[in-house]
Design a protein around this nucleic acid. Structure first.
Lengths: 147, 147
DNA sequence: TAGACTTTAAGAATGATTATCTTTTAATAA
DNA sequence: TTATTAAAAGATAATCATTCTTAAAGTCTA
């Protein structure tokens, strides 16, 4: 997909601008994160990268992710149980819809989001700068399944 | 507050109905959870309970929380770093507004919520059964602070 | 009160993440 | 191209919330 390539190049540019080195391991990690299909966990990224660079350490993946987070080039989806997941494709806050059965994640495009953010500010006086909006339920396919 | 007492009684009733025992430790835990001011962590609940029952174990608090979650009497707020927090006062999904500076949490009453849920269903075909809607930003007081 | 079953307490185990420390390497300039 | 050097990688230990295990204590019922 053309878009993934653009994301990869953008991430590379950001690293260079900040004086960060482009190592083979980092490039391999970026290649996994740029499309971010399935929003991989650190473990999953590691499993891909280790095929090409067998000496890669989990610590390297963790450190690269931390760097990318600081640069605003990856979105961390936190889960208190199980591992966190990472989206390098859309590294800004956005709503998710998660199927609790097959674990599929969809990014809806919600017109009502700006209205809700406005309502939050108006009602609480908060200056909203970030959000985590996740909806959980059954996707169309899983609704058809019996059990 | 009258309301806290009603919550406590409701929780006790639920436990009894399900054939669960009301032990002194459990009662002490419920007393902390019913008002849920500050949405305490397991550690914080433990620190209160251990004053009256010095032999109490952290495991007991964890097990009671697990039981209450199963009975739908407490809402778990997950955080991948730091501990989870628990709301026994409003044990159903509801939006939060969190101050990233002073950590204060406010429950807004959002009219736009039903519209957004409808938009999610319409657009994705998901049957939405749950959500986690958290907004992060600065509360009015913290906006006034300089740094 | 005895017996059966729960719950508690204490500490070990787990698992994701972070920290530490040594070795290796990418980027720069001679 | 090579030497230099600060950054990054790799290996492994440490951390910390949570879960598990097992034995002792408590609760309820007959």
């Amino acid at each position: 997909m053309r878009n993934d390539e653009a994301r990869l190049n953008h991430m590379l540019l950001t690293l260079k601008e900040r004086g960060q080195r482009i190592t083979p391991q980092r490039l391999a990690i970026l290649r996994v994160l740029a499309p971010s299909e399935g929003r991989p966990s650190v473990e999953e990224i590691y499993n891909v990268v280790v095929k090409d660079f067998p000496t890669t350490s989990l610590a390297t993946v963790y450190k690269t992710i931390t760097l990318l987070k600081e640069l605003g080039e990856v979105l961390e989806l936190e889960f208190s149980q199980g591992s966190n997941r990472y989206d390098g494709s859309k590294p800004f806050p956005h709503p998710h819809v998660v199927c609790t059965r097959c674990k599929r994640i969809v990014d809806p495009d919600l017109e009502s989001l700006s209205a809700m953010t406005a309502e939050v500010s108006e009602q609480t006086g908060f200056k909203v700068v970030n959000h985590r909006l996740d909806f959980y339920g059954l996707c169309p396919e899983c609704q058809k399944e019996k059990v």
